[in-house]
Design a protein around this nucleic acid. Sequence first.
DNA 1: TCCCATTTCGGAACCGGTTCCATGGCATGC
DNA 2: GCATGCCATGGAACCGGTTCCGAAATGGGA
Lengths: 379, 379
Amino acid sequence: MGIRCRILWGEVAVRKPTIGIATVAAEAGVGVGTVSRVLNGSNQVNEATRIRVLSTIERLDYRPLRSASSLSKGRTDAVGILVSVITRPSVMARLVGVIDVLSDAGLDAVVFNVENRAQFERHLSSIIDQRRVDGIISISLRIPEERVTRIRKLGIPLVLVDNSLPNFPCVYIDDVAGGNMATKHLLSLGHRRVGFIGDNEHTALGKSSSEDRYVGYLMALEAAGIEPDFDLVARGPHTSEAAAALTSAQFELGQHRPTAIFASSDTLAVGVIKAAQHHGLKIPDDCAVIGFDNLDISSILDISTVNQPLLESGIKGASKMVSLLNGEIAKPHREELPLDVVPRGSSLGIQRNNSTKLYGVVEGPIGLQILQRGEELVS
Amino acid sequence: MGIRCRILWGEVAVRKPTIGIATVAAEAGVGVGTVSRVLNGSNQVNEATRIRVLSTIERLDYRPLRSASSLSKGRTDAVGILVSVITRPSVMARLVGVIDVLSDAGLDAVVFNVENRAQFERHLSSIIDQRRVDGIISISLRIPEERVTRIRKLGIPLVLVDNSLPNFPCVYIDDVAGGNMATKHLLSLGHRRVGFIGDNEHTALGKSSSEDRYVGYLMALEAAGIEPDFDLVARGPHTSEAAAALTSAQFELGQHRPTAIFASSDTLAVGVIKAAQHHGLKIPDDCAVIGFDNLDISSILDISTVNQPLLESGIKGASKMVSLLNGEIAKPHREELPLDVVPRGSSLGIQRNNSTKLYGVVEGPIGLQILQRGEELVS
DNA sequence: TCCCATTTCGGAACCGGTTCCATGGCATGC
DNA sequence: GCATGCCATGGAACCGGTTCCGAAATGGGA
């Protein structure tokens, strides 16, 4: 009934009495079953008894052991979250949505940060083979085929956020359409030489959002009857520094340089803008820019972008997991979230017909000249 | 030995045979103890036997159940991470450090996102009372006194990151000194009217970093023999919008307006800069700005700041937790991390004597004119 | 050949809740 | 008064690894 003996260094035996459910039951003069029922809020217990048990629990400062409960119940009430490079703001936002929903549902959120292939494999096998969680939510990651097969065979609940896989619940966007929208936006402003700056990190372990957006870019060009110029297409690591370097190269093409650039993420768009400034090009007059994701920074820097519901994707994904674990079938198994272009100063420039007061052009080493819609910012 | 029966809807009984350690033992012709030893890498097992057991495990596709192991071992191998508003980039960076170290140590990182007092209490009691984790890491949060008492009494390992508490391991910075350094930097540039923009969110549940930095600000003024002007001190929510509004009010003081502003975080500094531009003030000539934290955005926008090792704080904090759980005493129980001023364009302006080529001043609605040290960005 | 130390191994007891079945008490219906 | 049914309850069996003790096998030395 909870007496553990341990011999320390050949000295006297040390008793470490643990207060378990049996102790509580004995102390309250009831059976263990009753205590368990009280703990789990069963309505099968008399009110007077319940109160007596509760007060005993209080008095003994009894705290039920989660792992014992998990063992009996056959579930951990925890969900594993596999997350690709967590530091990316877009990934972060999704993660927050996931965590909030899970914790509201009383589920533990066990986060696994995946930064390389080896780590990915290690985490996957740890999750799958050690049965430490009831389900898996994968954010912006592409799970290797053999793992998917195994997960499917074992019947482990899996939900994908920002990716999709046949026969699994998922929440995703149409990146091709998004790339198309962004490019069309630039084309609609009259640009004919539109560049593309993307990242190449999907090769590692993520989903190839950038490549999908590139496909959309090509489609938009084709629809406009424009022959793609592959000198205006470049890919590199997912950093603004890399994007700046790639863009810089395009700006050195002289009269063949792009007059507008679609960066496959806002982070890259920042680099594009840096490069433009480096070359003395005015934005958007000399070069229009649009990004993707609608991160905080794009709003701060007044960068046009394609908005996708990041937080919401996490919320919806986690909700599907909760339904799955509760045995309810998530009705719309697969869910595509809407996208929309957010036109800002980096493509539109100052809208002269905007009646609100605009910021003047400021000189100086820092000219973070932000075009705000109206005065709300400094209200 | 692992046969579970369940009656479904009054239909036939369904047998769900589970493959447990006993099955493996029987199948391999050994005892359960041996299988367990193999699983845990004990060296008390003959090589031939080990191989036989491993192949049986492989053949049966046996996966040990984490919660059973936890129950016997008396530990969960999981650590709870309490995190204040996770979306803040500074908090995020610390979290990443923590998660990486924990997962390297084979510990699960269970993340609890705390956004309000009620959530905080709920998560705390869930963690403490349900014994779901072996230890707690608290990031940028101030734990209520009564909870601390309880944690201490129960002997739950607790590590604080970006905060400190007597007799608990912690990793922190000297915010007072940081505020002092930032303000001194501005004073050293000749400014006498230095404003302070801080946040007031510590009242809720976080640590009062902003207030500590304010104290440092006051000390620096005093050391310079400057009487503080409380018209130049303002606090609001932790958003650049709020900071912009507060700053704007200061700029309307006419000749009494500040010529330099210390913002207690980079996020706020962005708002300060927005407000300056709104008022047609050049930075840093008309108003110098320094922030705090050295976030990505401050580097992108060339904002002077005070650097603190964010990722490192997480790494060190988690390492302390690992030591604690391993029974090793974390030697330097409390650890203060170093701070340093990172002077950038928002306070220094263009350094004319810098030999590297500088970006020209660009006109246009977006003049994200970033002063880079050298060409490495567009290399 | 016998003795003792070492290595390897089997398996019962145990970790601490959960669940299900048996039981007792009480009210209702005939 | 007795059968019936429901509610509340006790407690044994169970969940599936871990650990420890005792024992068997092995090997080396006298």
